[in-house]
Every structure is written in C-alpha cells, then in structure tokens.
Design a protein around this nucleic acid. Structure first.
Lengths: 350, 350
DNA sequence: CTGAAAGCGCTTACAG
DNA sequence: CTGAAAGCGCTTACAG
C-alpha cells in the first residue's frame, strides 16, 4: 500500500531491541519505568526507540498487567434533557480533571435508558476495558449499584447509595441539609406557604431534597400542604405546570417556590408571569444548580449551587486510589452546596 | 483474599473450552460471531460459557485484531468556559449517539491547553488505545491537524480544515453563509451599522463568521467600520466590553450586534442596559448557539442555532465508516444552521 | 465444521 | 543490571 508520511509507530519492542542490541525485556524495562537499568543501555534503547518512532502498545501492556488506566462512565445519551442540564458538563469536567492528573482516561459509553446502564457498565468491566466505573444515576427503581456490586467490581457512586448498599463508596452533595437551609432561609424572610418542585420522584436526590424540605418546614413549626409538593421532572414545562397545580386553591397558594433545578424555576417564572403575579414582590423562588442562565434571568435567579465538578473529581480520585491499592472502594464524602442569592427572592411584605 | 459475590469473569476461553470439551479456538469462533459452527457445539459452548460466567476479554481481542472499537476525543479540561458553552454537551451527545449505534465507545482524554491537544491525541493513537480520533478545535495557531496527519492517523475534524489540509475529512456548519444570512436579515430590517463580536480571533470559526459578516455587508453595499468589529473571546464580559469599545464614537454606533455565541450576547445586553439603551427598540442583537438560556432572557434572544449534535454524530459515523473500511478519511459535510427569531431583534424605526 | 499452532506486543519472575 | 522463557487471552490462516 502506498503511504505518505511516517505511519504511526509500526515498530515494536523487539525492533527496538534488535537495533539497540539488547533483549526485548530490557526495552520493556526502560519503558515501564521502575526497573534498574544502566545509564548506558538506557541511552542506547532510548535512541533506538527514538529513531524507530517507537511507542509501547498500551493494549498489549494492558493485557499483560491487567490494567488499562481507564475509568468507565455510562451516559444516557437518549435523553436530550440530560445534556441540557448543567450537571453533565460539570460532571465531565471533574472526571477529566482528576483522571488527567493521575494519567487516566475516560471510557464513555452510551446507554439507551436507565435499565441499560448497568448492562453497559458491566460489559465495560467484564470485558476489561476499564479498571473501574463511576456511576452517576441513582434511580430507586433500577438497582444499578446492586447489579454492579454483585459482580464485585470497583465502583464509586456519585450520589447517595440506596439503603441496602450503604457500604459502597460514594460522594454526594448535602442535598437534604442544603434544601433544608433554603427552606429556613425562605421562612426567615417571612414565607409560610412554600412549594417544593422536585424532578423525577424516582431519583434519590429528589427524595433527599424533599426530606430536607419537610425537615425545614417542620423545624419552623409550619404545616405542609400536599398541594405544595409537585414533580416537574426537571423540565421547563414541568415547572410551568407545577404553578398551575399548586395554585388551584388560591387561598392556600404558596408565596415561595423551591425548584430542584433552574430549568423548572424558569418554568415557574413563566407560570407566575402569565398569572400577572409580581416576582419577587408577591412570590419568591429559588432554583438549583446555578446554571449559566440563572444570573441573566429577569429577575436574576437565586439558586442553590451544587459542587458537581468537585464531586466528580473527588469520585474519580477515590476510584483511582482504590484501583491502585487493589481494594474494593468504601467510605464516602459529602460536599457542601451554597446558596447564591439573587433578585428572585424577597422578604414577604405582610 | 476474602471475597463476597461472584468475581467478574475470571474464566477464559480455555476454561470454557475444557468444560465444553472443544478446542479454545472453537470457543473463540462462537464468540467472534462470523465463523461456521454447528448448532450442537455452539450450544455446548454457550452453556459452558454461561455456567462459567464467561465474557471474552476485549483487551486481548483488541491486541489480536488490532482494533479497539473505541474512538478518541481530547477535551481542554482546563478551560472552564469550554464546559459552560452549549457546544460541549451537544458534541458529546452526538458522538455518543453515533458511537453507541455502531458498537463503539468513546475514549476521552483531557489536555491542559491547545498545545497539548495533539500530544494527547497522538498518544492515544500511537499507543493504540483508539482506532481513530475526532478533532474539535481548529485553532489557526496550533497545527493539530497537521501533526496528526503527519502520523497518518484516522481522523475527522469537526470544523473547517486549515487551507494546507483541505483534503482531510471534516464536517462543519455553514458558518460563513449562516452569518451572512443573519447580516442580510438585519439589513432587511433597516439596520445599516451592524457590529460583529467574534470569539477568539485565532479560531477558524471566528474567521469564517467574520467573512460572512463582511460578505453580507458588502452584498448590501454597506461600508464596514473597523470600530464595529470586536472579539469577546466567547466570554460574557467580552461581550460587555465590546459594547464599550464599539460605542466610543457615538455618531457611528451600531444599531445591531451579531455575537458569535450567546454568552457574549448576554454581555452585550448588559452593556446596553447600563447605557439605558432600549432593547430592541434602539438596538437589536443576535446571538449564536441557541443555548438553553436564550429563550429565557429579557428580551428573549434571537440566536443562530448551529447543529452541533448532528455535526458530532456525522463526524463519528464518518470516522467509524473509514475505520472499518480501512481507508484514510476524506470528504466532508456541511450542515445548515438556522436562525431562531425571538424578541431581541426589531425593525429599525427611522 | 473443528483442531493445532503461531502470533498480537507487552511484562515479570527466575537465573545469573 | 540483563537475558531467556513463559504468560496475559484472544484470533486466524492452515490442515483435514
């Protein structure tokens, strides 16, 4: 075949060995780094390698050492909303940052729904394409963690583990506590009727936040009307509909909304506007994630900033630590969220 | 070592062979799919595999067939802005979608700047960790494409290739034509003094758009004042500063702005507001990317929607086609952008 | 349709 | 410090 330019590293360890007049194992030793090699032969080998444009084949090495320096992650590529949310880019940034630092790469696979997630993850692990996996979805209806643990696979979870897998390694934000603090903040501003608009009720974050909401209300001695609790499935339109559903009984209508993401908060804003409700004069609202759009809304959206990037970096670091120590990961980390105060919240005028 | 649960596929092809009482090569044949195997022995092998929880080791297979079913992509994880822009998630969604469909996975590596990009890419390829690579950045000051081509490596570029590599495979949006159309649209609404706010002038997209801008102005017979051309480096603050710089000479101030991303458009909006300039009454503006925030600004932002996801999917598909056909990729695709009209643009009242 | 053998390109205990 | 050998777990031309 006719080829222009030098083809990618066609040479192997034995070509280099021949040229440097040493045994292939010696070449291997200078490239795997640790072994004791005399300056002289190292020099010769390096020169030979140089001139042959040699780079060790990572796949061959992986087969030999049974390690790929790769960590896996599975993403539900069929859900458009997944990529629109600011969780995703921050997740990737954190994973990449930590992996790069440790000389690892990310093997990313798609999945066509939550059921497929552990299938894909297991495939990656069973076929030895990655050394471990970080799991991001913790849906209560799909036992991804259980499925993976059954196979005794290095895993760290971003998010809380389900109760039966409490001893798995995980890192998460303080969802319950942070939501509770938001509620307390709103209560402190005079709000008494506060709505909670969650995402998908089958996800554990949403439950944790709901719990924080209930705790906050209870701590303030406020009753919770079930009319104030709604699930917008993380979509703009879900937030919009939540307004409708939570304001059927006008006498009991909320004066403040907490939304589990900013997109729903935007939908809530739209719903309030359509009803000519002054924002934040009559009704305040707080979003979650501090997405790029938050600061630019009218009014600017107060939002609970969740440290996704740091969480992802911590998860990857933890996973790599465990991979390299050869132990099954355990233990956890809880990272603090932080409320960014902006114009969408106001003291309630009585 | 003490282990609970069944460990991940410890068995190999020869364990299965022993159990099924066939030769290992036969086991290999039933798993690699193509070979002719009698129903009877296939059955026996499958059962043996089942009971041993066998899954073929992909790394070993890769070493043997010299193919990983993995495509590489390098991301500049050190640039925060990269992950904030809507380009990134759409890129990933498209790459994943196409890869998944073809049974490929993505090997994602970080890079600590544009100079590092081809170093990382080359490393992935030279060490045979991926079968090909999709390159996303085309910076005019760093010859990533040239570096990769020199090594005769399967590559497809998302974006226009630099002139000296015109024959590389690429897919891109119609940046020049689309920008030109935006300008013509603004001209049609009566605007005569139109500003162009680009991103990083060292990136080729930005040049292409600038060219479209100049073409559009020229076609309308309008002069271009160099004061109207500014570069905001894709940052909100860059857009804000562009307002300042383009309005020093008030008599010559633009009545419309085109920004090469939405974030800069948001900065422009802020700059205009601070000067109490009515939007869109006095000044119109158009962004690019139709990011999630665009629709929710006040006024809602008109934006040029670039089909990043489709571009990425097309690039991955093209790359995989080429990998599987064993040829060096060539040819290209140009995908159409689409202007989403919203409230930030108005007919100029004279 | 199936077996036996050589090979993919490394690594690493074992000698010396 | 270096060599010789066996092995990592597959694949695939070559026979039959």
């Amino acid at each position: 075949m006719f080829c222009v330019g030098q083809v990618l590293s066609v040479s192997t360890i034995r070509d280099v060995a021949a040229r440097a007049e040493v045994h292939p194992s010696t070449v291997s030793r200078v490239f795997s780094g640790n072994a004791q090699i005399s300056q002289a032969t190292r020099q010769r080998v390096l020169e030979a390698a140089q001139s042959l444009n040699f780079q060790p084949n990572a796949i061959a090495r992986s087969l030999s050492v049974r390690r790929t320096k790769t960590i896996g992650v599975i993403l539900p590529h069929v859900f458009d909303g997944y990529f629109a949310d600011s969780f995703f880019p921050r997740l990737m940034a954190g994973l990449l940052e930590a992996s790069y630092q440790r000389g690892y790469r990310l093997l990313v696979g798609g999945c066509n729904g939550y059921q497929d997630e552990h299938v894909q993850a297991l495939d990656i692990l069973a076929t030895r394409q990655a050394d471990g996996i970080v799991v991001t979805s913790s849906r209560l209806d799909v036992d991804t963690v259980g499925e993976l643990r059954r196979h005794n696979t290095p895993l760290v979870l971003i998010g809380h583990p389900p109760a039966q897998h409490a001893d798995v390694a995980w890192v998460d934000a303080d969802n319950c506590a942070a939501t509770r603090q938001v509620i307390e903040y709103l209560v402190g501003l005079g709000h008494r009727r506060i709505a909670y608009v969650g995402g998908d009720p089958d996800s554990s974050v949403v439950k944790e936040r709901l719990e924080g909401y209930r705790e906050g209300m209870a701590a303030a001695g406020l009753p919770v009307s079930e009319e104030w609790i709604d699930f917008g499935y993380f979509a703009e339109d879900g937030g919009y509909q939540a307004v409708e559903r939570t304001r059927r009984n006008l006498a009991n209508a909320p004066t403040a909304y907490y939304a589990a993401n900013d997109l729903m908060a935007i939908g809530i804003l739209r719903g309030l506007r359509e009803r000519s409700i002054a924002v934040p004069g009559e009704v305040s609202f707080v979003g979650t994630n501090d997405s790029p759009e938050a600061a630019h809304l009218t009014p600017p959206l107060s939002s609970l900033r969740v440290p996704y990037r740091q969480m992802a970096a911590a998860a990857a670091t933890r996973l790599i630590d465990y991979i390299e120590s050869g132990q099954q990961p355990t233990g956890h980390e809880l990272l603090e969220s932080c409320l960014i105060e902006r114009g969408s919240v106001q003291k309630l005028e009585l």
